[in-house]
C-alpha cells in the first residue's frame, strides 16, 4: 500500500542515532521530530524532543506521570503549537498547519480521556472518521442526490468493515456514550483508522482495561499495523504491553528524553530505573 509518498517532497535521511526497524530503513521515516519543545508560561513542558519513526514501526513513549507524554501528542497534532522545533511528517514540514490539516496530512490519534461523539451512534462516530473520504457536498446531502446515496452506502460498509477489526459491528446502532469503557477506547481507535492515517497515535489505549482485554488489544494493535501498514506510536503505563509490542521506546522524564532504544535496552538503562523507582538510597 503506497500511501502519500509524493516524489516532490525531498527525501529526509535517517539521523545516525535513529532507532527504527531494519525493514523501514530503506524508506523515508514517517515522522521526524527535531528539537521539539513547548513552554506553558514559565513552565517548560517538553524540551529537545527528537524522535524518528519508521513507516511500519510500533514505538512506545513512556515516562512517569506528568512527564509530558500527552503534551508530545498534542504538539504532533497541533492541539498546541510548538514553541520550538520542527515536525516532519513523511518528509513534509507541518509548520503552520492546524489540527484538522494535520489529520488530513496523515496523523490520527486517540485521547487519554476518551473523546467520542457521545450523543451520536457508533456508526456515525466511525463515519466522522471517514469524513474526508466521503465525497459529496452540502447540497448533495440536502437534495439527496445520487452521490449522497452512493457515498453513504460506501461509508456504511466501510464503517462496518472497520468496526469488525474489533468485532464491534453489532454495536453500530448504539450511542457511543453508552458503550462500556473498553469498547469506547476501541471505538476511538476505529474512528482514528477511518481517517486513513499513516501514523496512529494511541494515548494510553489499555487504561482501564482488564488483563484479558489488554492482551487482546496487544494482538489487535499488531494486527492493525500489519493490515494497514502504518506506524503506531503509543503512550502506555502497562509495561507488559509496551515491552511486548513496541520495537523502539523513548522514555520521557520532566519533558526530556532520558533514554531511547529497544525494550531490552530501555529496561536495563539506569536512568530509566531511577526515573521510575526514584533515586536509590545514597551510599
Amino acid at each position: 500500500m503506497a500511501k502519500r509518498f509524493s516524489p516532490e517532497t525531498k527525501m529526509v535521511p535517517f539521523p545516525s542515532n535513529a532507532i527504527v526497524p531494519e525493514r523501514d530503513m530503506d524508506s523515508r521515516p514517517i515522522l521526524e521530530a527535531r528539537n521539539l519543545g513547548i513552554d506553558f508560561g514559565g513552565l517548560t513542558a517538553v524540551e529537545d524532543f527528537n524522535v524518528v519513526v519508521g513507516r511500519t514501526e510500533i514505538c512506545g513513549l513512556i515516562g512517569p506521570n506528568g512527564a509530558g507524554k500527552t503534551t508530545v501528542f498534542n504538539l504532533l497534532t497541533k492541539v498546541y503549537q510548538p514553541t520550538r522545533g520542527t515536525i516532519l511528517l513523511d518528509g513534509r514540514d507541518t509548520y503552520g498547519m492546524n489540527t484538522s490539516q494535520v489529520s488530513s496530512a496523515g496523523i490520527a490519534r486517540t485521547f487519554q480521556n476518551i473523546r467520542l461523539f457521545d450523543n451520536l451512534t457508533v456508526e456515525d462516530n466511525v463515519k466522522l472518521g471517514l469524513h474526508n473520504e466521503i465525497k459529496y457536498g452540502m447540497l448533495g446531502g440536502i437534495l439527496r442526490m445520487p452521490g449522497y446515496w452512493k457515498q453513504e452506502k460506501i461509508a456504511h460498509q466501510r464503517a462496518l468493515e472497520l468496526l469488525s477489526i474489533f468485532d464491534m459491528q453489532d454495536m453500530a446502532d448504539q450511542k457511543a456514550g453508552s458503550l462500556p469503557y473498553g469498547a469506547q477506547r476501541r471505538l476511538e481507535i476505529v474512528r482514528a483508522l477511518g481517517t486513513n492515517p499513516s501514523l496512529l497515535l494511541l494515548d494510553e489505549p489499555a487504561a482501564g482495561m482488564n488483563p484479558s482485554e489488554t492482551a487482546e488489544l496487544m494482538e489487535n494493535i499488531i494486527k492493525i499495523r500489519d493490515m494497514f501498514q502504518i506506524a503506531i506510536m503509543l503512550i502506555e503505563h502497562d509495561m507488559n504491553l509496551v515491552m511486548g509490542i513496541c520495537e523502539g521506546i523513548a522514555v520521557l522524564n520532566f519533558g526530556r528524553i532520558i533514554a531511547k532504544g529497544t525494550p531490552a535496552e530501555v529496561q536495563s538503562n539506569p536512568a530509566v530505573i531511577e526515573a521510575y523507582l526514584g533515586k536509590k538510597k545514597e551510599g
Binding site: S100, L128, H131, T195
Partner: peptide, 15 residues
Amino acid sequence: LAIRDNRIAAESVGI
C-alpha cells in the same frame, strides 16, 4: 453535530 459534541475530537478527524 460532531463539533457540538466534542470540538477537539472533531478537529482530530480532520473536520
